[in-house]
Design a protein around this nucleic acid. Structure first.
Lengths: 193, 193
DNA sequence: GACCGTTGCCAACGCTTGTTGGCAAACACT
DNA sequence: AGTGTTTGCCAACAAGCGTTGGCAACGGTC
């Protein structure tokens, strides 16, 4: 390991940078990549659009910074194997509702190739890694992770993006009860014939 | 029933209208609502952009025409109850791969409110109606349909939009085998405590 | 107190977008 | 042959976009 990088020294503009990032996440989450304009983001952050360019280089750069995301998956080896599904759904729902970054990423991934790439990275790296920690057949790990992603992203897509009434009206705990067995089977179930 | 509506009399421009519609579906499916420009669609259809306006009024009108879609769900009452899940996944996968309209709708629904509304309509009306045909508890019908939609749309989202490698590389029949039990439980399973 | 990097705003550029109005050719009908 | 409608293209518009360069005010340093 290299010695810890320099703390990049607090700049006087840090508050502005943070305000831009917060406004950007809001706008990207609400409007998607192309409808979220730099001008609107700057207005929300109450600064000039040119500041966004100075601090983040371009709209793509701003998005890349705003869409930085860590799933913060818990250590699955310390979870009772029978509760894996429930723990995962609950974790994802909480993560989703507590941080609009994922909604921003989800919306943008539909139309922006970079966002889709980022999404692939998150689910291919973080989720697959977590699934790999308990020792199932390695050849199936990626597929199991993909299936989990399909249900989790479908849940988010119908609940936060399309806003299908039954998926919006159902409480998080009810959703956990319904969806947990699905993830449980994708994670630990025996493969179909 | 009223007598069959007049055949609207074949117009000489029908070929052009159809070419526009085909190009529009392609572009909307590939690029989403905002990146698919009228100019690009017109170029694909090899006509002038102003023709698109004359025949479809506006970009919104063009999208509304291009996103007309029928799930063509089979009559579920004639399906062996134990095969409901498998039949549904297979049907959706086939429908999805045979007609890019649904991909267009899915991509656009992320950022365009009208497209999201259309998506809600399709799944709230067509799918809920199909689920309602076999006599489960009516109070649960909407929720069951919503859960089915979440898995189906998640499948499509990861396979056709984000293109998660494991979801792209897996054959349709393998996906059917994995996902069918999920839909089966959402449709006919006993509700969790 | 003079210097220099930082922070911020303003005005503008070049480009693309959806959309419009007018005009020429092709057609249909009598 | 003559008339009215349909089909199509061209040129242009106003608006909005991401992006740029310059210039004033501020803050710390010697």
């Amino acid at each position: 390991m290299a010695p810890s990088a320099q703390p990049t020294q607090a700049r006087r503009s840090d508050a502005t940078r943070a305000a831009i990032l917060r406004a950007a996440r809001e706008r990207f989450a609400a409007d998607g990549y192309e409808r979220a304009t730099i001008r609107a983001i700057a207005a929300d952050a109450q600064i000039d659009p040119s500041m966004v360019m100075r601090y983040y280089g371009s709209k793509e750069g701003l998005f890349a910074a705003a869409a930085e995301f860590d799933l913060r998956l818990p250590d699955l080896t310390s979870v009772p194997p029978a509760h894996l599904g429930a723990v995962l759904v609950r974790h994802f729902l909480a993560r989703w509702e507590g941080d609009e970054t994922l909604v921003a990423l989800l919306r943008a991934a539909s139309t922006n190739p970079g966002a889709a790439e980022r999404m692939r990275g998150i689910f291919a790296d973080q989720l697959t890694a977590a699934v790999a920690t308990f020792g199932t057949d390695p050849a199936l790990t990626a597929r199991r992770a993909g299936l989990v992603a399909s249900q989790i992203l479908g849940l988010a897509f119908t609940r936060y993006i399309v806003r299908l009434p039954p998926m919006v009206d159902t409480t998080a705990e009810e959703l956990v009860a319904w969806v947990a067995p699905t993830l449980q089977r994708y994670l630990t179930g025996t493969p179909p014939s």
